[in-house]
């Protein structure tokens, strides 16, 4: 964990360059990002190109920094005392960490779904209307429309359409997570970050959420952190492998899982450590 700075950044930079030359448009560009929790160097010289309207998966053993990295993409780490970021992350060419950027605007465009479902202590309807309301929408008809559309979008509508006024806590874990996805969709973000969204769910709910991602990627750029390699292989087009705060390898999902270039990646995807 200590000698990582000796890693040669040149090959990663090459990789980043090769990523930009892919046919799909770039949504988020991450250049030489280092991240610290007080004295702890959590991310080391990360370079990634996240393509528009695709699913990008980030895999790696726990504690490798993949969640931390995800949270730098909508500045969620700003909420934690003593964190520091160097390098540059840009969304559609604009620096996220520019002084003029307002995190409220940013997070409206880059939404996030968390590891454990975290519905608010209010009704299903109000959970979804929460985002549009704070962003200034009060029109009842439009809100109804958004609630229905996003619930349909997250494949939850049929199950809850008769109890929209019920407390969100009354839903099952899988339903709650889909509600949280619907809640994120309701503010019409461009990017959705998902931090191990299925880790607390049963296989059936997991399956439904994976299906949902397949649909969503037509309209949204999705970045998902997962510790489940099968899931990464099923849902993503691009995969990045994190180890001890570094991004060891990044490329097409097929390539990462079938012919990894790095020894560490090969060991990890073949289940030698985890």
């Amino acid at each position: 964990m200590m000698d990582v700075t000796t890693q040669k950044p040149s090959s990663l930079q090459d990789l980043a360059r090769s990523q930009t030359s892919t046919p799909t448009a770039t949504k988020i560009l991450v250049e030489n990002v280092d991240f610290y929790y007080s004295a702890f160097h959590a991310l080391k010289t990360i370079n990634i190109v996240i393509p528009d309207r695709q699913v990008t998966a980030l895999i790696g053993p726990s504690g490798c920094g993949k969640s931390t990295f995800l949270r730098t993409l909508n500045r969620m780490n700003d909420l934690i005392d003593g964190t520091k970021l160097t390098g540059k992350i840009s969304l559609d060419g604009e620096d996220l960490y520019d002084k003029r950027v307002d995190v409220v605007d940013l997070r409206k465009r880059v939404g996030m779904v968390f590891q454990k479902p975290n519905p608010f202590p209010m009704s299903i309807y109000d959970n979804i209307a929460y985002g549009p309301r704070i962003h200034g929408l009060t029109n009842r008809k439009k809100l109804n429309e958004i609630v229905e559309r996003t619930l349909r979008g997250s494949a939850l509508w049929e199950e809850v359409k008769d109890k929209l006024k019920a407390s969100a806590f009354a839903l099952s874990g899988g339903q709650q997570q889909r509600l949280c996805i619907a809640r994120t969709l309701a503010v019409e973000p461009e990017v959705i970050l998902m931090d191990e969204p299925c880790s607390a769910l049963d296989p059936n709910s997991t399956f439904r959420i994976e299906q949902l991602m397949e649909d969503l990627k037509k309209d949204y750029t999705i970045v998902i952190v997962t510790h489940n390699m099968q899931q990464a292989a099923r849902v993503s087009q691009r995969t990045g492998f994190f180890l001890r705060g570094e991004m060891k390898e990044f490329g097409d999902t097929d390539q990462i899982f079938t012919s990894p270039k790095q020894k560490d990646t090969e060991d990890y995807v073949s289940g030698k450590f985890g």
């Binding site: 995190v103 997070r107 939404g111 608010f120 202590p121 929460y130 985002g131 309701a186």
Partner: peptide, 23 residues
């Protein structure tokens, strides 16, 4: 996670306090 859920939707700190934390 309650606060993060609200911030992730683009809420300000006061909106988060008033509409999520206090309730």
């Amino acid at each position: 996670s309650q606060r993060e859920g609200s911030y992730a939707l683009g809420a300000t700190q006061w909106e988060t306090i008033k509409q999520v934390v206090i309730p």
